[in-house]
């Protein structure tokens, strides 16, 4: 097949056809994967909820309510067992992470005690700051069963009660910051 001449018409035609075909196929793949992507996101959220909350039998994702704090949004997921509130999970954030914003899911019992914490999203250094993730290390176990009323959410260096991750004080501070933000807004009338 001979190369086509680079006339204006030919160039326009070729680019239009290529762009049309590619956007059509992209749209097709997007439609195809839309369902699975949404399902994967929901599964991730449900998994996080289950790991941070006591046993529940409602659908916290359907009862979610939100509150704008510090230029971002906190999401509250109330968990009930037989319509009795057993805890609230708060999807919280901190912009102070070493590699950018971190997002956590913090599960609180009705009295404000931390039940468990799961990391949703972070860009911390692999091997150092990423130890906040339970998949990488047991560091975040120290938060379990603590009530921020008498457990100061700050690293020991800053006069708090949290043992920082070795060589990752910044990541640890961000983690505390996120948990504290969740606790404060939950206590300030965030609980429903």
């Amino acid at each position: 097949m001979a190369k086509r001449e680079s006339t204006f018409g030919n160039m326009l035609l070729a680019l239009t056809v290529v762009t049309l075909i590619s956007s059509a196929s992209l749209g097709f793949v997007y439609e195809l994967t839309k369902g699975p992507i949404a399902a994967a996101k929901l599964a991730k959220k449900n998994e996080a909820l289950q790991s941070v909350l006591p046993e529940f039998n409602n659908h916290p994702v359907e009862e979610v309510y939100k509150k704008a704090v510090d230029g971002d949004t906190l999401y509250f997921f109330p968990a009930r067992r037989d319509s009795q509130l057993v805890g609230t999970a708060v999807e919280t954030f901190s912009p102070k992470g070493f590699g950018g914003t971190i997002r956590l899911m913090v599960g609180f019992l009705p009295d404000g005690t931390i039940n468990n914490v799961a990391v949703l999203e972070h860009k911390e250094t692999p091997g150092l700051g990423d130890k906040m993730d339970r998949k990488k290390s047991d560091w975040s176990v120290q938060f379990e069963g603590k009530n921020p009323k008498n457990f100061k959410l700050a690293v020991k260096k800053d006069g708090g009660d949290v043992q920082a991750i070795t060589a990752s004080t910044i990541s640890s501070r961000a983690f505390c910051d996120a948990v504290e933000r969740a606790y404060n807004s939950l206590m300030k009338g965030g609980q429903q």
């Binding site: 001979a2 190369k3 086509r4 006339t7 070729a14």
Partner: peptide, 14 residues
């Protein structure tokens, strides 16, 4: 064969 020489780079990028 279909793509004219002058616009081949943008076409490849797409």
């Amino acid at each position: 064969g279909f793509i004219p020489d002058k616009v081949r780079i943008p076409a490849y990028i797409v």
